[in-house]
C-alpha cells in the first residue's frame, strides 16, 4: 500500500509539472521554470515561519507570489537594467535560493525542513503523514490530496485557457491581434508553474522538480508534432517515470526523486536516439540509404 501512495503522489506531481513544462519548453522559457522552482524556496520557508505548518494555504500563496515576483524581477533587471537575460535569470534565482537555504539553516529548529529535503524531497515519507479528520477517521496520506488538488487545478487551468495558452505560445502576435492579453496569460502560466513547484516541493525537492518540468515534455516533443498529443504523451510519461523510478530507487536503496530524474533522462536519451521521425539513429540510417541510392543511380 505504501508503494501505491508513493507512486500515486509521484504521478500527480510529474503530470502537473509535465503539462506546464510543455508550454515552458515551447515558449523557450525552460530556464525560467528552473529559476521559479529555485526561487519559491524562501517563500515556502517564510510562510512556514508565519503559519507554522507545512500544508497551509499560506505556504502555497507565499510561494506562488514569490514565483511571479521572480519573473517580474528577471524582466525588470533585463529591461530596466540592460542586464542580459541569462545573467538576470542566473543572478536572481541563485540569490533567492541562497536566501532560502540560509533561512532554513538559521531557523532549523522551527522549520520542519532540511537541506536534503530541499534538494531531493522526501516522497518516501508520504504514507506516514496521514490526514486524520477530527472524528479520528483516516482518509489517506495528506500529500496525495495536496498534489491531487493541484493537479486538478492545473488540468482545469489548461482546459479553460487552452485556446489562449495555445495562441500565446505559438503565435503571440496573432493572439494580441484578437485581443488576448499575452502578458496576463504569461503571468497566469508563471503562477501555475509556481503552484506546481510548491506542491511538488515536499515530494521531489526544488531542483529535481526541474527534471519533471522539462524532461517528459522534451521527450514527447521529439515523438510527436501534434500539441494535444504531446500533452497526453507527457502525462503518460510522467506516470511511467514515477512507477519505474520508485522501483529503481527501492532496488538500490537511493533517493526516489533522484531515481525518477534518472529515468526521465534515460527516456529522453531513448527518444533522442530512436524517435521514428527525429531520432539520431533513424536519421543516420535514412541518410545512409539515400547515399546508397544516390551512388547506385549514378
Amino acid at each position: 500500500m505504501d508503494a501505491f501512495w508513493i507512486i500515486l503522489t509521484g504521478s500527480f506531481v510529474s503530470i502537473s509539472c509535465g503539462l506546464l513544462g510543455s508550454y515552458l519548453i515551447l515558449r523557450r522559457m525552460a530556464m525560467v521554470g528552473d529559476a521559479i522552482s529555485h526561487a519559491v524556496l524562501p517563500g515556502i520557508v517564510i510562510a512556514f515561519l508565519i503559519s507554522g505548518q507545512r500544508d497551509s494555504i499560506t505556504m502555497l500563496i507565499g510561494a506562488g507570489v514569490l514565483g511571479v515576483l521572480t519573473t517580474f524581477l528577471i524582466e525588470f533587471l533585463h529591461k530596466r537594467g540592460n542586464l542580459q537575460t541569462d545573467a538576470s535569470i542566473g543572478v536572481t534565482f541563485t540569490w533567492l535560493f541562497a536566501l532560502g537555504i540560509i533561512l532554513i539553516s538559521a531557523y532549523a529548529g522551527q522549520v520542519d525542513l532540511d537541506q536534503d529535503c530541499v534538494l531531493h524531497g522526501e516522497i518516501a515519507y508520504v504514507p506516514i503523514d496521514l490526514w486524520i479528520t477530527s472524528t479520528g477517521k483516516i482518509i489517506g496520506p495528506r500529500a496525495v490530496f495536496i498534489t491531487g488538488s493541484v493537479l486538478i487545478i492545473i488540468i482545469s487551468f489548461i482546459i479553460i485557457g487552452y485556446k489562449e495558452l495555445f495562441l500565446t505560445t505559438f503565435d503571440p502576435a496573432f493572439a494580441a491581434a484578437i485581443d488576448i492579453s499575452t502578458a496576463m496569460w504569461h503571468y497566469l502560466l508563471m503562477g501555475a508553474v509556481s503552484l506546481a513547484t510548491v506542491a511538488s516541493f515536499e515530494s521531489v525537492g526544488a531542483i529535481l522538480v526541474v527534471a519533471l518540468l522539462i524532461a517528459p515534455p522534451a521527450t514527447a516533443y521529439l515523438l510527436t508534432e501534434k500539441f494535444l498529443f504531446m500533452l497526453i504523451l507527457t502525462a503518460f510519461l510522467g506516470i511511467f517515470i514515477s512507477v519505474t523510478g520508485y522501483y529503481l530507487a527501492v532496488s538500490i536503496d537511493g533517493s526516489i526523486a533522484g531515481a525518477m530524474s534518472t529515468i526521465a533522462g534515460l527516456l529522453f536519451a531513448l527518444a533522442f536516439l530512436f524517435s521514428p521521425k527525429e531520432g539520431i539513429i533513424i536519421t543516420w540510417l535514412k541518410n545512409r540509404i539515400i547515399k546508397k541510392e544516390l551512388s547506385e543511380s549514378f
Binding site: A211, L213, A218, A249, G258
Partner: peptide, 30 residues
Amino acid sequence: RSKIKEDTAIGLILSVFFGIGILLLTYIQH
C-alpha cells in the same frame, strides 16, 4: 542535432545529471 532548443537542453541536462548525482549520493549514504 535535434529540434530541442538550447534552454531546454540546459535545463534537461542540469536536472537529469543532478538527479543521477542525488541518486548516487543517497546510495553511498545508505
